[in-house]
């Protein structure tokens, strides 16, 4: 499934429309080294961390997109960095678990 289809099915709000990458699976986590060590390319990453380093982690891990859960917000500098990297940023107003469930139900 492509990110665009995932957005359509989940209704998550697009903050930065990046490259329309393939999505294969989901990773949930807020401890960056844990995410770096265990995340896999093409996963959608659900987190509540919104500072600059999440962009670095997502790019290096080759995630498809970041879904920021629990009504958290990305600062402007993070949005700019994501634009430069072509990385899709999404908002979910749901808690992490419900965000993951919605992705599961969407077929990710």
């Amino acid at each position: 499934m492509k990110v665009s289809e995932m957005i359509e099915k989940t209704g998550f709000k697009t903050v930065v429309p990046g490259e329309d990458r393939e999505v294969n699976g989901v990773y949930c986590g807020d401890l960056l080294s844990w995410v770096m060590g265990n995340g896999q390319p093409e996963q959608a990453w659900i987190t509540v961390q919104s500072h600059l380093n999440v962009i670095a982690v997502a790019v290096l891990r080759e995630f498809s997109c970041i879904v920021l859960a629990e009504n958290a917000e990305f600062p402007e500098e993070v949005i700019e960095r994501a634009k430069n990297e072509g990385l899709t940023l999404l908002y979910s107003d749901l808690p992490v678990y419900e965000t993951a469930v919605r992705l599961f139900k969407a077929g990710v």
Binding site: D30, L31, L32, S33, W34, M36, G37, T47, Q49, H51, N53, V54
Partner: peptide, 15 residues
């Protein structure tokens, strides 16, 4: 608070 300090830095490097 920034999500660092998981204690996985050197173990990730070694792996």
């Amino acid at each position: 608070e920034l999500g660092f300090g998981a204690g996985m830095g050197l173990p990730n490097i070694k792996r």
